[in-house]
Computed example of a mutant assay.
Amino acid sequence: MTTLSRRTLMGAALGTLGAAGLPFRAAQAAGSMTAAVYPGGWDEALRAVLAPALKQAHGVDVAFEPLFAVDQIAKARAARGVAPFDVFVLDPGPRVSGMDLKLFEPFDPARLSNRARLPAGYSDEVGAGVAAQVVGIAYNPKKVARPAGWRDLFKPEFAKHLGLTGFGTTFGTISLIEMAKSVGGSEADMEPLFTELRKILSLVPAVAQPAAMPGLFQQGQIDIMYTNTYTVTLLKSRGVDIEFAVPETGAAAFGTTMHIAKGSRNIDAAYQYIDTMISTPVQAALAAPPYSFVPVNTEVKPGADVPMKSIDDLRSFVTHDWTKINPQRPRWIDRFNREMAK
């Protein structure tokens, strides 16, 4: 992968799934820290794999706080200079927002002992890449036919099985953008999307928050959803009938990064946390079932359920320009919530 600009590291070139974490002040003792984590699959995986590895390697305990990326940014802004946690985990859009708002400590990639295992361009002065995500359509093969692409989701035979979620997550945002493109819209024109969504709204069985979608699928309340590969593999490991469909226009992909929060009191532990996350044993464990993360460590190959052979394959996936998306996204979120809530 070629080195990207400071503002678009992995994000624009290449979002997410819950127990409450301990409050920040509870993690101030020596050998402890706090980290934001995506609710659901990420929370489960990092508690099971990363936390014990960090404790074993560095004697550091981590308290997790499950928050989607946009919620991490909102919480950090509301904290007014007091770090609400030590480490962010972000998708490309919120990463750019965090940079613009100066929410990150300066980052020195040289402090990562595993830096050489990252592809070029996967670490810079604000953070480091820790995973990639691939987004497409999940469906229950026993209930519905395999969707050929995003446009199929507007057809009644698919819409009556579809779970809708909005623009609050990266996977939701890029899925809805791709759905808009399939009916003549674009990043600059979402009107065709909302027109088609209004036509099928009475058919769809659920409009819900992103964290609720896997549960609704597992319970059989929906049989189609737009999501990422690791949600599919995690549900499959639990015996759920689910498959991942790569849309005919291609699956979308993006990078996930970690950053040290401005004002963190545990900077050494934060570096150790990120370094452990990108280490070969942790990346290999996360890439294996049931988690099936897309690894960024060049020594680790993606699992069989991921539609790629190496991190370099992400070059051929659908990507998005978050410098164009971010200014419009709050309006899209508000409109979806107003017009699609059932």
Rank of each mutant, 00 (worst) to 15 (best):
E105T: 14
E65A: 10
N297D: 06
G121M: 10
V134M: 13
V60N: 01
S5T: 12
P92E: 01
M1Y: 05
R7L: 11
A30H: 08
A211Q: 15
P214S: 10
L201R: 15
S202W: 14
G250C: 05
G220D: 05
G127E: 01
F217R: 06
G250E: 08
I137Q: 12
S279F: 01
G93M: 07
R95I: 01
L201F: 03
I177Q: 02
T170H: 10
S97P: 00
T195S: 14
N266E: 09
L112S: 01
V126E: 02
V246K: 13
L101C: 00
V306Q: 10
L203K: 14
Q272I: 05
F64N: 03
K324N: 11
F293N: 09
P330F: 12
I222N: 11
L162Q: 13
L9V: 13
M308K: 06
A128N: 02
P307C: 08
V49Q: 03
S292N: 10
V49F: 04
R331G: 15
G168K: 13
A26V: 09
G81Y: 06
R47I: 02
A269P: 04
R331S: 15
M190P: 03
K75Q: 15
P290H: 07
W332T: 06
A180S: 15
T16M: 04
R111H: 03
A13R: 09
A13E: 11
G184R: 13
A116R: 09
V60Q: 07
V96F: 08
S32Y: 05
L197N: 14
L286Q: 06
F167H: 10
K262Q: 08
N326E: 15
R47A: 13
Q219G: 08
L176M: 13
A252Q: 13
V60W: 05
M308G: 09
G129A: 13
Q221P: 04
A51F: 04
K75D: 01
S123Q: 08
P192E: 11
F104Y: 15
T8V: 07
I73C: 07
L101S: 12
